[in-house]
Write a protein that binds this DNA or RNA. Structure first.
Lengths: 229, 229
DNA sequence: TTGTCAATTTAGGCAAGACTAATTATTGTG
DNA sequence: CACAATAATTAGTCTTGCCTAAATTGACAA
């Protein structure tokens, strides 16, 4: 007389964890994740994704509407958030204690997140003083599965004249992150938008009293909070 | 016009790393490792080991004489020592910085050793001040592949009346390690053998002024150095 | 020398997870 | 409405790494 999903805490493979994480991120915008989106993000072929989606669906970790897309079940989301917590805490730990730079932690965390135990993750969280965000400003899910939803505006959408604080750099690309750091645009930095050119044109900022011009692509990665809350 | 082994630094799987590590430890006593020994240590069936041995032999990581045993090649040994270095440094790091007890680090290290990068390992080594031994007293191979060979005597072989210092606890079993810790017989402890019963009988020690009796099995795990060098 | 037993290897299979090629749905457009 | 383009799925294969069952080898004792 079981209900829907069987409570089988089978050992998850690295692949399964990666799929769930990718689907969580892709479907966090409300829309279900498509096969090709998942394939692109994980750098796999579409048929590989189709196959895995069936297996995960059979295990009750996601719901699949053929030709439409996939969404995580509660159990799938729980696992995805656990991986996200691990990933972000590992990044924070490596930066804080092992001298990693914010543009190099991603790859290391990507491998470690599959290998650490819950005990180790919580020890790292404790050593860090239970931070709420990682070095890129991404919120760290709590151990209970809740996650803070900050309301941020991409810097490319901030009106001319507004004062905002950069809170988050939404990229895992080392080159872009290094560029952002060198431009002194890391999370925590207050900036004023002085000018915005149309058609995805450059944006002129005042950062720490200095004028600086950046492109639309980078500005879209910098998520900001308005000064006046 | 290549010589013997092709220099293929293919990505090693977790399994391969585990096999090489197991074979290194089994054959470190001079004798080649047998199929059944490897199978027992890795908790696999003998045919599985036969199959993997052939694959590793094809890759030039070990030499196999059918029905006789296996020995690592220079390349296989290099990889095994790299894994051993990782494992022992991770153990040392977890104990020193993340509040792990010496009886619980093994399993965590067993997973992490396959996931850490060389950079991370060296950062941990640096944070630890480049220790020569791990929390169990096992020597940590250097990054160049050399490993210290300490001359130790099992406590069960120490003559009555001798003063020795316990240097190493040769077990990965949490229960035994906890017992050893509770008996105050951790590495670094000086002890005097007061009595030895024959036929693998109990051994009476003086530890920090207190008399203590332990069994032969535990005494065999405690590797000691003689006081007089 | 031969028989027996244990250790080992071979034979044959299975599951996960990837791929390419071929097929089927969906969707947007004329 | 029909048709082409695109997206997704099915079909079939491959590799890794494990398994059990069956054959083989080696070693030791009678």
């Amino acid at each position: 007389m079981r209900m829907t999903a069987q409570p089988v805490p089978e050992p998850l493979t690295r692949s399964v964890e990666d799929y769930l994480k990718a689907i969580y991120r892709l479907s966090s915008g409300g829309h279900p994740a498509s096969t090709s989106q998942i394939a692109q993000r994980l750098e796999l072929s579409a048929p590989s994704v189709s196959g895995m989606v069936r297996r995960l669906s059979d295990q009750g970790l996601l719901e699949h509407v053929p030709y439409k897309g996939v969404e995580l079940t509660a159990e799938g989301r729980r696992i995805a958030l656990r991986m996200l917590r691990r990933h972000r805490l590992i990044e924070a730990y490596l930066v804080a204690f092992l001298d990693y730079a914010w543009d190099t932690v991603h790859d290391e965390a990507e491998r470690l997140e599959h290998a650490v135990s819950d005990v180790l993750v919580e020890r790292m969280a404790h050593a860090l003083g239970h931070p709420r965000v990682d070095p890129h400003g991404d919120p760290i899910p709590e151990a209970d599965g809740s996650i803070a939803e900050f309301i941020h505006v991409p810097l490319c959408d901030v009106a001319v004249g507004e004062n905002v604080t950069i809170c988050r750099a939404d990229s895992t690309d080392a080159g872009r992150l290094r560029y952002i750091a060198e431009a002194h645009l890391m999370p925590g930095t207050p900036v004023t938008v002085l000018d915005r050119q149309p058609y995805n044109g450059p944006i002129t900022l005042e950062v720490a009293g200095v004028e600086r011009i950046i492109g639309h692509e980078i500005a879209a990665l910098l998520l900001c909070a308005r000064e006046d809350q």
